[in-house]
Design a protein around this nucleic acid. Structure first.
Lengths: 242, 242
DNA sequence: AAGTGGTCTAGACCACGTC
DNA sequence: ACGTGGTCTAGACCACTTT
């Protein structure tokens, strides 16, 4: 009720944090509804308007999804809308196609200095390294390499990747309870080396997009470092500046 | 007051549109404050809370900027923050540097089929074509080519471009009253041809980012079509996925 | 002290979806 | 008919800036 002056945080932000904690703890799973605003207001001992403002922010961050008349849902990577928020590649011709992920390998390794710094883990920690190809209509368009803290994805393995129908992030979400909430990307143009050219079925030294991504889960915790090489002969990377 | 069921638009959105109209009409200029929420509430005959929600959305879209205790301001491309919203290129090493724009040429021409479609104007309409280089610390990093409807930028010319200290968009904003509000970009990787390689001071066939941008002013009116070629030897394009 | 935006509340009513 | 989120209002008080 009273606003403490130093390090002041409004009530609705504290409520927001409590909701994120509950999400992080798995109290409400992806795809499910969370309690109604009235229920949350009762639970946290604040007015409905204050809950509303907390939920508003989480909805703006695409962590929750409001549906009038139905309730408020936890977003899920099962949903194509969420999927395309993280894959910004569009076909030049033709409508949107759900790409197919083809895993190439899944190795256990140890974090080098770069990976350790990106993932905020100890150098030498156990990590998984996953390489895979993304195909649109059977045509390879992306090859990427992921670095994943082993602690977060306990028993990840090749057959798991091969058997899963759907996106990688939806696998991580359902199998390990890790939801990617946001990511940053650094994009460069590079030339295809021979190995990559073969995989993507392009000529050696073809210009490719190099997309380095750091993906975060709740609480700004980095849980994936990835580098993708995108062929842009039939696709382009879309971005909205606003 | 009463909600008409078909084509229902909430009050705050109507207020938002009225505010945008006033901005578009130049009633409040970039960098200036708009009237207080109370004044706007009186003017539009609604409660302060309704004005607040309208302003909230405009602030979320970076069209307005709220400053507690001071007022609500019209954003301006003079502000570095706004500038970097539209230039997503960061130096690999070293802090942020304000790049310098070096105009190469400014031609009058007529819209081809592509430009006409992008800009939603008649094929054959008068347009300006501007080519320029962006230099960071004296090093060329971007060369781009802009297509601008002549109607919007009446007496644009080379000396105007040369004399202006600041970003192109701040020139457009102060000289022609055209504010870029949002843009979409399509990004590909391409090889530098000889002409571009010379301008950017890289080897021929170096991989470059090709960034095609369509920029909009109020009311989703496209007012600039541009294609940039970015050298990513010392810089990278940053993007936030959220 | 006065003016601005920011927070919080309580209540009324509307729009949408389900039962 | 009921429950959900969505809108709108009115009022009180807080935090920040300027006078």
């Amino acid at each position: 009720m009273a606003h403490e002056s130093p390090t002041f945080s409004p009530l609705y932000r504290q409520i927001k944090n409590l909701i994120v904690q509950a999400l992080d703890a798995g109290e409400w799973l992806p795809g499910q509804t969370i309690p109604s605003e009235q229920e949350l207001a009762l639970r946290f001992g604040v007015s409905q308007g204050t809950v509303r403002k907390a939920v508003d922010e989480l909805a703006a961050e695409n962590i929750l999804l409001r549906k009038q008349g139905k309730g408020t849902f936890v977003t899920t990577h099962q949903d194509p809308h969420t999927f395309f928020r993280f894959l910004r590649l569009k076909a030049v011709n033709g409508g949107p196609v759900l790409p197919k992920s083809m895993p190439l390998e899944c190795l256990r390794g140890r974090a080098g200095i770069e990976a350790a710094r990106a993932l905020s883990i100890e150098q030498g920690s156990q990590i998984f390294i996953v390489r895979r190809v993304l195909k649109f209509n059977g045509k390879p368009a992306v090859v990427d390499e992921m670095y994943l803290p082993a602690e977060v994805y306990p028993d990840l393995n090749m057959s798991m990747l091969r058997d899963w129908q759907g996106s990688l992030y939806s696998l991580f979400e359902t199998r390990f309870g890790v939801r990617m909430v946001r990511a940053t990307e650094k994009i460069r143009a590079v030339a295809a080396d021979r190995r990559v050219a073969e995989v993507l079925n392009v000529q050696e030294s073809t210009p490719l997009l190099s997309v380095e991504r750091l993906a975060y889960t709740y609480g700004d915790k980095p849980v994936e470092w990835r580098r993708g090489l995108y062929s842009t002969e039939d696709h382009y990377y879309v971005n909205e500046l606003s």
